[in-house]
Design a binder for these strands. Structure first.
Lengths: 155, 155
DNA sequence: CTACCTGCAAACTTTTTGCAGTCAA
DNA sequence: TTGACTGCAAAAAGTTTGCAGGTAG
């Protein structure tokens, strides 16, 4: 996953101004293991910026995604974002259903897939969902609090 | 893909009343090769029922999905629906980006995937996107009209 | 200094809910 | 006949846009 400074660099190099808010956004995503919904982001950012408005969050999420700093994924519950993977080689993900943290899978099934009759492949998606070791352990302990996707970040 | 009567049966057996509108819905999905958004469905149904309201479409889509007659998938552009696959064995899909028609892939990569360290797999998704033979042919002919997802259905 | 960024307000899209009349079984 | 289904209206939720003042570079 990208580090705070890498995300800031991406924005800076593309001509974006690095405001306090955008730096905090970069830090939030750099230190979040899982996916964040616009609402998650808004609620987190509100703790640091009192007069924050939802539209600015949307604008920044969109810009950061268009610049390639963030990845956008559709879940059943709606859109979510996380920092782009820093690994440059093609890979897939295991995704924990509890904490939404992702783990890389190097294996790509595409090479082994028999594509029928003149179908021209453009892209593919291979995602594995389940429960990660940590969340299973937490559950086993009988703790009712799942590890949250939100993170504590010192501003 | 399920046939009209199969969809109607599913609804009927679960205690739903088979209204004219629901039968038409069943027929629409049975004869549609691709995915349909709520809007697509609404616009199609409007041609047959003048006073149709959007909320009824939503209600019926939700009910049919909960009964297992329809599959619901999130695309970048939003939710879409199509009739459940009638094949009973596990499979995946090639999805055409133009007409959104799907083609089955029997190969499942899950068996070959090395899952790390105590990750408990619950489900997986493997989808291949591209252009199908028909749409490629249409494009090659220089025709600007992509084969629509909507279908002509005699009421 | 200047163009970009932000908050505010409002519009817009998508989806859900309550209610009363209508209709399938 | 009766409970489920539908249309209408309105609300709720999610997202986008225009504008005027503020700020990074």
């Amino acid at each position: 996953m990208l580090k705070t400074e890498e995300i800031v660099q991406i924005m800076s190099k593309q001509g974006l101004r690095i405001t306090d808010q955008r730096r905090t956004l970069a830090k939030l995503f750099a230190e979040s293991a899982g996916y964040l919904s616009p609402k998650d982001v808004y609620e987190y950012m509100c703790q640091h910026y009192s007069g924050l408005s939802f539209d600015t969050v949307y604008r920044n999420l969109r810009v950061m995604q268009e610049l390639g700093a963030l990845e956008q994924i559709m879940f059943e519950e709606g859109v979510k974002f996380k920092a782009r993977c820093s690994e440059d080689h093609h890979h897939h993900h295991l995704i924990c259903l509890t904490c939404e943290k992702t783990y890389p899978i190097t294996f790509c099934p595409m090479k082994l897939t028999d594509v029928p009759d003149q179908f021209q492949v453009v892209k593919h998606k291979f995602e594995v969902f389940g429960y990660c070791k940590d969340c299973l352990a937490t559950e086993a302990e009988g703790l009712s609090v799942p590890s949250s996707t939100a993170v504590e970040i010192s501003k």
